[in-house]
């Protein structure tokens, strides 16, 4: 399969007053053409920074990004600002979390769609407007002919996010980065938005990177899942493998903390206790060890590598998968 994006050893450091925050600490992953890759993890694990650094949208300074991002065979990190402008919007589109704040309140929706078309595809204003109406129709906005002249405040939250999708996909980019696109929306609207994205993915053959902490959405749409914790990938693999056979305690914790329909009323949800580590001084060993129920002596000083585990393309970074560790299925893993 054609790899459209290949990220190697991506590191993003933020210089702050207290030191250097290592937001992303050596992330590797790839995205194939036409597939949906979900990046999951709790707040502050580096998933948004990873996503934004793909388009070089992380403000720099204070951020310093190193490593390699190959997009369609070209290195993104060494491109000039002008070259980046021709990648952003044209080759990669981005949808943000909060549709209430990510649209410009003083410009019509139409204008916000057409400005990209005029810039990247050299369309005339009239042609671009026609295309904008078409896009609004595609994302399921009724009366696109009149809606195109309206301002964001005349749209509801769900409609705005549809508008955002129209903006992001207007130039038919090869990669769509959706940064928690449904988090700020009503549950009923969430499904609609995901459906719009899925439909358009099929229509245009767009690859999607979906950043989310909603595992329900992931199960629904993602082909592959990347689980991030404390700025690193802790597990990655096919969606099915991740859900059926998670190989990292953090992934299992995430899955257990989701309420299930078949759960009994008095059965409590199982949270992951504690908070992620301070990324100014990340721990030397496994970053999850402090919160891990199955942590072993080896975990504290030694950081486990992301290695292949059972299942195709399935990788996890956990000592429990080491041949010398207890089988995960057995009770308690405190001895190493």
């Amino acid at each position: 399969m054609e790899r459209i994006l290949e990220v190697k050893d991506l590191r993003v450091n933020f210089k702050v007053r207290g030191g250097i925050v290592q937001a992303v600490r050596g992330v590797n992953f790839h995205v194939n053409k036409g597939e949906t890759v979900a990046i999951v993890g709790e707040s502050g694990c580096g998933k948004s920074v990873t996503a934004q650094s793909l388009m070089r949208l992380v403000p720099s300074p204070p951020a310093v990004t190193t490593g390699s991002i190959l997009f369609k065979g070209e290195e993104v990190l060494t491109k000039s600002l002008r070259q980046m402008e021709n990648v952003r919007g044209k080759e990669m589109g981005m949808i943000f979390q909060d549709p209430m704040t990510s649209l410009n309140p003083t410009l019509t929706i139409g204008k916000q769609i057409t400005e990209g078309l005029v810039k990247h595809q050299g369309m005339s204003a009239a042609a671009a407007k026609q295309r904008a109406i078409e896009m609004l129709k595609l994302v399921g906005i009724p009366n696109p002919e009149s809606r195109v002249n309206q301002y964001p405040h005349e749209f509801s939250g769900g409609m705005r996010q549809r508008g955002m999708i129209a903006i992001a996909l207007a130039c038919n980019p090869s990669l769509l980065i959706a940064d928690e696109p449904t988090t700020a929306l009503d549950v009923t609207v969430q499904a609609q938005i995901m459906n719009v994205m899925k439909d358009l993915q099929v229509k245009f053959g767009t690859s999607i990177i979906l950043i989310t902490h909603d595992l329900g959405v992931v199960a629904d749409v993602a082909d592959r899942v990347i689980v991030m914790y404390a700025g690193k990938v802790v597990e990655s693999g096919k969606t099915r493998d991740i859900f059926k056979n998670p190989k990292h305690p953090y992934t299992r914790g995430l899955l257990e903390s989701v309420p299930r329909l078949d759960q009994k009323k008095d059965e409590p949800l199982i949270p992951i206790y504690g908070t992620p580590p301070d990324l100014i001084k990340p721990p030397a060993g496994c970053a999850f060890a402090a919160r891990c129920k199955e942590a072993m002596r080896v975990c504290l000083p030694n950081d486990p590598a992301l290695v292949s585990v059972e299942g195709e393309d399935h990788r996890a970074a956990c000592w429990l998968n080491h041949e010398l560790a207890h089988p995960i299925s057995s009770e308690g893993g405190e001895s190493a």
């Binding site: 388009m55 949208l57 980046m84 952003r88 943000f96 990510s102 649209l103 410009n104 400005e115």
Partner: peptide
């Protein structure tokens, strides 16, 4: 620092357009 400025950058707008069309008016 508003989100819509980030949106404009993500669209590949140049710094000048972001300044005049998107930021200044607001």
């Amino acid at each position: 620092t508003a989100d819509y400025i980030k949106t404009a950058r993500a669209k590949g707008m140049s710094g000048r357009i972001i300044l005049y069309r998107h930021a200044l008016r607001n």
